[in-house]
Structure formats: structure tokens, C-alpha cells
Computed example of a mutant assay.
Amino acid sequence: MKICFLTGPQNSKRCGITDYVNLLRVVLENYGHDVSNICLSGSKTFKKVITNLPEADIFSFQFAPYAFSPNGMLGVDLINLGKVLRKNKTHLNFHEVWIGAYKGASLYEKFMGWRQKREILEFVKVLNPSVITSTNSAALDRLQKEGINATYLYLFGNIPFIETDVSTNSDIFKVAFFGTLYDKFPYDLLGKRLCEIYAIYGSKIEFRIIGLQRESLGFKKLRKVASCYNFSIAETGELSSTKVAKEINDCKIGVSTTPYDAIGKSGASAAMLEHGLPILAFDDEDTPKDQLFVINEFIGQIFLINDPFESNKLLHFISQERKPFFDGVAYTAKNMVRMVS
């Protein structure tokens, strides 16, 4: 099968949609598929594709509003692309949808979200995709409320399996933070939950900031919690994927500051889960509970800090042998081929 991906511009400085496609491409080519990727980086590239669309059995458009435009709006270029693509078999994968559809959104976010939603809904109507998918519960809920029949497609991590030993050191309880530290995450509540763990486990708690982490309000809040509860904190700086894998294996638990309903769009959270690490997360209640889910492979591996917290259950999970590595890239490649075939 000849598969053509359409993404935003390549950005080698951060883990993004093009990195996701590059990893997926390798596995799909190993399965015998002919795979290409077109990076759309502005109006000129949109017009070039519109006037000279390559041949393919399936076009897979990897969509996130801000991947293509600083304000999340593409205008006529998006609609014109939809008109050309609709003559072909298409797969539309939403990594993100419109902003502002959550409690506490500012007036600006609500206004821009309203504009983005109008554009996205028009694009879906024009494109008439063969298959529509999304990577997370929040986006699926928003799409389904607008009458768009979308299904789930897992977004994998970008840290491959490396043969390293899982730490058995019981003197330090290492907590992994890998990925963006979001400002709105309840860091104070996290501190309280970790104190509950400390009261049972008895080992010194150390925050491990894995990878390059930019200065942010979330980072400042995390430092404050570490200071308040006398937790140590260590930053690794930028690391190779091999060293990231080793860091993850050296930790007891991980923390995802991405809201639970959107955790599916976080490649960093996926990487920790794929390496068998239990994850602490937070449900901001923006999405109805009956719409929340994780794939079967990760059931019982994510612990919500705002639920009646079960420290003993988490520690029992940690005491067991680490789960084997889950190959998320192969899992997604197989599911995508099944959906679009």
C-alpha cells in the first residue's frame, strides 16, 4: 500500500508530529508499504500540494491546529486542500482539536476556539475522510459532540526499548518527570500524595527531571513543592534516547502533568507507560468520566491523585516485577493499516 502522510513542518528540536510519523514510517516500510511524508510549512507548500498532489492509496493527514499556523487558523488553504484530497482515500488523525472547550478557558481562548471549530468542522465536511481518528479521550469527546464519528488511534512514545537493568535501589524513591511541566497541574496535591507514599515506603523522594526542560511556571511550582516537602530534585539536561530509557528504568514511578483526558496526546507519558512505569496523573474533569479510557495494556498502571488515593495499591504495583516493554510503534502501525485498508 502506498501511504502519503501530510504533517506540519519538521522540527528537530522537539518531539512532535513529524517525529511520530518518522517512527511510524520505519515500521510501515518494514511491513512492505511505500511511505512518504509531505511537510506543509506555509501557504506556498499548501498550494504546491493542491496543484501537484502525488499518487497514493491513502493520504493520512496528521492534524493539530497549531502545527500549521501560529494562531491555529489555516483559512482557505485548508479548505482547498480538503477539496483536492476528497477525491482520494483519506485518513484524518486529530492530535488536537480546537482550544477553549474546557472549564476556566479565557474569553480569548473561547473566541479562538469557536473560530477554529468552525474551520475544522467545515474542513471535515469538505474532506469527507474515509477514516477519522484521534489520540485522546478529550478530542474524541469534542468531535463526537459535533457529530463526527471518530475512533481511537494510540499515540506511542519515542523512546525505544534499551536493554538496561531496572533499579532495585530502595534507598531513594525516584519520581520521573518527562515532558512538559504544565502550569495548571496541582503540584501541591502531588506533594501530599507523595508524602503518603513516603510514610509507607520510607525512602527519600527524589524528583528526576528527564531531558531538556525549559523554565516555566510549572517548573517553578514543582521546585516549590520539592522545597516544601524536603524532596530532592535533579535535572539531567538533554539526553540521548538510550540514556532517557535508563533514567526511566531507574525510577519507581512517573508523573504526567498532562490532564488525564488528554494524556493520550503525550508521547512522553506514553514512553513511561511503555517502559512499564506506573504513572501519577490528574483528572481535571473537563471530559465526562464515561468517556475516559486507556488502552487495555495500561489498565491499572495509571493512578489519579484526585481520586480516593490508594497508596498501598500503587506500592504493590511497584513491588512487582516491572512489566515488559510495550512496542507502541508496532501496535499503532498494525491498527492504522487495519483501519485504512
Rank of each mutant, 00 (worst) to 15 (best):
M1S: 07
C4W: 06
C4T: 15
Q10P: 03
K13V: 05
R14A: 14
T18W: 01
D19V: 05
V26A: 12
E29K: 13
E29C: 09
G32V: 01
V35M: 10
C39W: 01
S41A: 14
G42N: 13
S43H: 07
T45P: 03
F46K: 11
A56W: 07
I58D: 05
F59T: 02
S60C: 15
A67G: 04
F68M: 04
N71C: 03
M73N: 12
M73H: 12
L74Y: 02
N80W: 01
L81G: 15
G82Y: 09
K83P: 01
K83R: 14
L85D: 09
K87F: 13
K87W: 10
K89R: 15
K89L: 13
T90N: 13
T90P: 11
H91K: 04
L92D: 06
F94P: 05
E96P: 01
E96C: 01
E96Y: 00
V97G: 11
A105S: 15
S106N: 05
F111T: 07
F111K: 02
W114E: 08
W114M: 10
R115M: 15
K117L: 09
I120C: 06
I120N: 02
L121K: 09
E122Q: 13
V124Q: 06
V124M: 13
V124T: 11
V126G: 09
V131T: 12
V131N: 08
T133N: 05
T133Q: 02
S134E: 01
A138V: 01
A138I: 00
D141F: 03
R142I: 09
Y154D: 06
N158S: 15
D165S: 14
V166W: 03
A176P: 02
F177I: 09
Y182T: 14
K184N: 12
P186T: 00
L189H: 12
L189T: 15
L190Q: 10
L194R: 10
L194S: 08
C195K: 10
C195V: 07
A199D: 14
S203R: 07
K204P: 02
F207M: 09
R208Q: 13
R208A: 10
L212D: 14
L212T: 09
G218V: 03
G218M: 04
R223L: 11
Y229S: 03
N230V: 11
E235P: 06
V244K: 05
I253Q: 05
G254R: 02
S256D: 08
I263Q: 08
I263P: 04
G267Y: 01
M272H: 04
L273K: 10
E274S: 10
H275Y: 13
G276R: 02
L277M: 11
L280T: 03
A281G: 05
A281F: 01
A281C: 09
D283E: 12
D284W: 11
K289G: 02
D290P: 02
E297F: 08
G300E: 10
Q301N: 15
F303Y: 14
D307T: 10
E310H: 06
E310V: 04
H316D: 11
I318C: 14
S319W: 03
R322W: 02
P324V: 08
P324F: 04
F325D: 03
G328T: 04
G328Y: 04
M336D: 00
M339S: 15
